[in-house]
Simulated assay, not measured.
Amino acid sequence: METLNFKTSIKDKEGVTVVTPFLNNLKHVDGWNIDLSDSDKLLTVQTTDNRIGENVIEAVIQAGFSAEAVGRP
């Protein structure tokens, strides 16, 4: 299992609710979490395929937010 991290513009629980269906519909995602207490509003994605980073970013953009890959564990 791989972990991918993304800095996002999701600021609150309402934003998490909006992005949820977009992230839940992605293939190869085993789970995800957005840390709203982190200054980068860090989205952590658990996946079996670490090549889906662009798909995650596109899903967040489709939900109306921004996302940028970051190299955090």
Rank of each mutant, 00 (worst) to 15 (best):
P73I: 06
R51P: 00
N5I: 04
N33D: 15
K27I: 03
W32I: 01
V16G: 02
K13Q: 11
D35C: 00
D49A: 00
I10R: 12
P21S: 05
T47G: 00
G53R: 09
K13D: 09
L42H: 08
V19M: 07
N33I: 04
Q62W: 01
S37H: 10
F6A: 15
S37C: 02
T48V: 03
S66H: 07
S66V: 05
R72H: 13
V70D: 09
D40R: 01
R51I: 01
R72Q: 14
N5V: 06
D38T: 00
V70F: 06
T20K: 15
K13C: 03
L26D: 03
L36Q: 11
G71Q: 12
I61P: 02
A63M: 04
E2Q: 01
K7Y: 04
R51Q: 10
E54N: 15
R51Y: 02
L23W: 05
A59W: 09
N24Q: 12
S37F: 12
W32F: 13
N50D: 14
D12V: 01
T48G: 06
I57A: 03
D49H: 02
R51K: 10
F65Q: 12
T17S: 12
N33W: 08
A67F: 13
M1Q: 03
E54D: 15
L42V: 09
H28R: 03
N50P: 12
G53K: 07
Q62P: 03
L42S: 10
E54C: 02
D35A: 08
E14N: 13
Q62N: 15
W32N: 01
H28A: 06
N5P: 10
I61V: 12
T8H: 13
D38W: 04
I52E: 01
V60K: 06
G53N: 10
L23P: 08
V56S: 09
R72D: 15
N33E: 14
V16P: 00
K13S: 10
N25T: 05
K27F: 04
V56I: 13
S9G: 07
T44P: 05
A69P: 11
M1G: 05
P21D: 02
I10D: 13
I57S: 06
K13R: 04
K11M: 09
V16T: 00
S39T: 09
T8V: 12
L23E: 12
T3I: 14
L26P: 00
G53Q: 07
N50R: 06
G53I: 09
I34H: 02
K11T: 11
W32S: 11
F22M: 02
L4Y: 06
G31P: 02
T3P: 08
D12I: 02
V29N: 03
D38N: 14
D30F: 02
P21M: 02
N55S: 11
D35H: 03
I10T: 11
Q46H: 13
D40F: 04
I10Y: 13
T47L: 00
A59G: 09
V19I: 06
D12Q: 05
V19F: 03
S37M: 07
E2Y: 10
D30T: 03
D40G: 01
K11Y: 05
A59V: 08
E2T: 00
F6L: 14
L36H: 09
E2N: 01
R72L: 15
R51A: 14
L26S: 02
G53A: 09
